[in-house]
Design a protein around this nucleic acid. Structure first.
Lengths: 148, 148
DNA sequence: CGGCATCCGATCTGATACTG
DNA sequence: CAGTATCAGATCGGATGCCG
C-alpha cells in the first residue's frame, strides 16, 4: 500500500520510557503489516465472524454488518488466506461449496482483536464525549449564537 | 477506509454518526471505532511518536519518516484530538508554537499498539511464508498477485 | 511556525454483468 | 453458490499557495 513508511527509527523510544521498541532497523516493526490487514474495512469483521467457527461464503457475507459486497468479501477473504490467517476449503460439488475457517495463526489474532474490542468498548463513551466536546467547541468558536 | 472518514473540512458533519449497529456481542461494533482510527495510514505512527513525550508540530512531522505531508499530519492529529487521544496546546507566541501530547486515553492505546507490534513481529515469518506459498501455488497462469 | 484551502492523481469500493 | 471482470463514484494523499 504505500510506499514510504516510517522506518524503525521512528518507533523507538523517545524519552526514556520504553514504548514500542523495534530492533530491526529498516523494517517497520511489522506494525504496518498487521495494520494493513486490520486497517482495511472488512478484515476484522471476517476474522471476528470466523472466530465463531467455519462458515460458507454466503453465510459469511450475510453475517457481516453493513452488508459487505461480494466483491469485497472475496478480496478480503483472499488476502486473509494469502496471509495464512484463513483457510479456504473447496468442496467440488454442485453447486459449489466453499468453507472458510481461521487457521491457528488466525485464531491467535483473535485475541488481539478482542483486546481492541475491549478497549474500544471501554473507551467509547469517552471518545464520544471527546467528539462532542470537540465539535461543540468548533461550533461555538465559529458562530456565536447558538445552539444546538 | 472508512465510510465515514473525515476530512477536516467535514469533521463537523460527522458527529453522531452511527457505528454499524451491533447485533450480537458488542465486540464487533466496538472494534470499528478503534479501527477507523488505527486503520488510517498515519495515526498509529503519530501515537507511537507521541508515546515518548510532547512534540511540536514540525518535530512530529520530522520524526515520522517516510515523510508525512503537512496536510496529513494535520488531519491525523486533528482526528486524534477530536477523539480525545491527543491533547493540543497552542502557545500564542510569535511564531506560533503548538505542542501535542497523548492524553491518558491515548497512552492506554499505546499498550494495545505494542501488542499488535509484538504479534506482528512474532508472526511475520509465518505470514511471509504463507504469502510465498500462496503465490507459488498460483503459479501456472496468473501472475500478479502482488505483494503489498 | 502552524495550518487551512484547492487542484489533481492514485486507490478503494460498490454495483452490475457474466461464468463454472 | 462462488467467483471473476469491469466501469463509475467516493476517498485518500501529496503538492502548492496563502494566511495569522
Amino acid at each position: 500500500m504505500s510506499a514510504g513508511h516510517t522506518d524503525v527509527t521512528t518507533l523507538k523510544t523517545l524519552v526514556g520510557e520504553p514504548v514500542i521498541a523495534c530492533e530491526t532497523p529498516q523494517e517497520e516493526c511489522g506494525v504496518r503489516d498487521v495494520l494493513d490487514r486490520l486497517g482495511d474495512k472488512w478484515s476484522v469483521y471476517v476474522v471476528v465472524e470466523l472466530a465463531g467457527g467455519v462458515l460458507r461464503f454466503k453465510e459469511l457475507q450475510r453475517r457481516i454488518h453493513g452488508g459487505i459486497s461480494q466483491r469485497m468479501l472475496t478480496l478480503t477473504v483472499r488476502r486473509l488466506e494469502r496471509d495464512g490467517l484463513v483457510k479456504r476449503t473447496v468442496h467440488p460439488t454442485i453447486p459449489p461449496q466453499v468453507e472458510y475457517e481461521l487457521t491457528e495463526m488466525g485464531h491467535s489474532l483473535t485475541h488481539l482483536i478482542k483486546s481492541l474490542a475491549d478497549w474500544s468498548i471501554a473507551h467509547r463513551p469517552a471518545i464520544a464525549a471527546a467528539r462532542q466536546a470537540y465539535d461543540g467547541a468548533q461550533d461555538g468558536a465559529q458562530g456565536a449564537t447558538d445552539s444546538r
